[in-house]
């Protein structure tokens, strides 16, 4: 009955477009070795600064042109997507788990738990986030897991604050009071009555956070603090593109566009999901 109703309402264009782009980008990242037209690391100085396919002087097989070392831009973007998605999923999930749990506890129990958690969040958010990230990676050492940990450590507060506020307003609802009268324990009420009502917000935030993780990863690789290997990353390509902007604008513009589209899709997808799964909005 529920499924039927969802189908009848149809998917909103927002959900379609955002979800579509994410699906395409994700599939491309997963099957990168099969899809990428060239080896993303292969250098050929004879092919440097080839323009994208619709401009004069383009080579077939190099659809979006090449960078200053003659590496295929499209292949590098596809392989860069792998790191972007791994970071997005892992870092956002970790931040979500920690932040939502603490936010739920602070919002539902209130009192001392709330005071302690809220002060920690305040202090945490006083740190400039990008500086914090750079500092963390510098301490942890570069590498994929460091980047993931750094993003999770910085951004759990985002979940914590929103979920705390939601849990607080839920805790004041009459059905929570009724559950207490009936004799449910506090933790049981938190998990059974409050948690399901904050899930739509968690989902929306999670998707938004994935976009933010992509941005932070790009910033870190832009300043050369992300992955130490030669693996292409979107931030890294943007950094290289910046140097050759006057000879080859495409090296900067395509990764930038990919990044923006992906981040925008994540946030819109999250909002669309929230509207879909919120039983009251539905």
């Amino acid at each position: 009955m529920d499924e039927a109703r969802i189908l009848r309402r149809g998917l909103s264009p927002r959900l379609w477009l955002a979800g579509g782009w994410l699906l395409v980008a994700l599939l491309a990242a997963i099957f990168a070795p099969l899809i990428a037209p060239q080896d993303p690391l292969a250098q050929d100085l004879m092919l440097e600064h080839l323009p994208p396919f619709w401009l004069d002087g383009a080579e077939p097989g190099y659809w979006l042109g090449t960078d200053s070392l003659g590496r295929d831009l499209l292949s590098r973007l596809i392989f860069g997507g792998r790191i972007a998605f791994i970071v997005a999923f892992a870092a956002a999930s970790a931040a979500c788990l920690v932040g939502s749990a603490l936010g739920l506890i602070a919002g539902y129990f209130g009192g001392w738990a709330d005071r302690i958690i809220s002060r920690v969040v305040d202090i945490w958010m006083a740190f400039p986030p990008v500086l914090f990230a750079i500092l963390l990676v510098a301490v942890l050492g570069t590498g994929l897991s460091s980047v993931i940990i750094a993003i999770a450590v910085i951004d759990w507060t985002r979940f914590c604050r929103v979920i705390r506020a939601e849990a607080m307003s839920q805790a004041r609802m009459d059905y929570v009071e009724s559950a207490r009268i009936a004799g449910y324990g506090r933790i049981g009420i938190m998990l059974r009555e409050v948690l399901p009502n904050v899930v739509p917000s968690v989902v929306a935030l999670l998707s938004l956070e994935m976009g933010i993780a992509v941005i932070v990863e790009a910033i870190l690789s832009f300043v050369n603090l992300s992955i130490s290997t030669d693996d292409p990353t979107w931030g890294g390509i943007i950094a290289e593109g910046r140097l050759s902007i006057h000879q080859a604008w495409w090296v900067l513009v395509f990764p930038l566009a990919t990044l923006i589209l992906t981040v925008l899709s994540f946030s819109q997808f999250g909002e669309g999901l929230k509207a879909r799964f919120d039983p009251v909005l539905r």
Partner: peptide, 24 residues
């Protein structure tokens, strides 16, 4: 006390809009 109240009493609340959990 909770057990006693839970077993022997019940509440008919004022506002039927907020007295049922919207997600269940």
């Amino acid at each position: 006390r909770r057990t006693l109240i839970g077993a022997r009493t019940a509440l008919i609340p004022q506002d039927p809009l907020t007295a049922l959990n919207p997600s269940r």
